[in-house]
């Protein structure tokens, strides 16, 4: 795929990973498992982007974390905080608004328009 093509796609996807993480981490999860979950659900992300992102979200108070030492190896589990749930809701609303805006854009430019009758 061409270079500018990739850049535009990346820019469009950038914010969606945050929303996906906040949503998936309603049930506690750890780094690598979350990476795989994201991949399966169509939000492919690089490990070197996700791990620092989780820490940033934690620092901003949207996630909380806890070390779990019961498993075979100690893992840091993240879970979405109250504040994070609020952010997820706002992001979701924004996403829906954008989706319908884009859909209407598509209708008016291709389909037969009723607006022009006015």
């Amino acid at each position: 795929m061409s270079e500018p093509f990739d850049t535009h796609l990346q820019e469009l996807r950038r914010g969606t990973v945050v929303l996906a993480c906040l949503q998936l981490l309603r049930t506690p999860g750890y780094g690598y498992a979350l990476l795989e979950q994201l991949e399966r659900r169509g939000f492919a992300t690089d490990a070197n982007t996700l791990y620092p992102l989780l820490r940033r979200l934690e620092k901003q108070g949207f996630l909380t974390s806890e070390w779990n030492t019961e498993d075979s190896r100690p893992r840091k589990f993240y879970v979405t905080s109250e504040q994070g749930l609020g952010l997820a809701e706002i992001l979701r609303q924004e996403w829906r608004a954008l989706a319908s805006a884009i859909a209407s854009l598509h209708e008016t430019s291709t389909g037969p328009s009723t607006d022009e009758e006015h």
Partner: peptide, 17 residues
């Protein structure tokens, strides 16, 4: 220390997979 422990686990998980 925190990043070290987390990275160790994440890398070990990925290698295991």
């Amino acid at each position: 220390d925190d990043v070290r422990a987390e990275l160790e686990a994440s890398i070990a998980d990925a290698v295991e997979a």
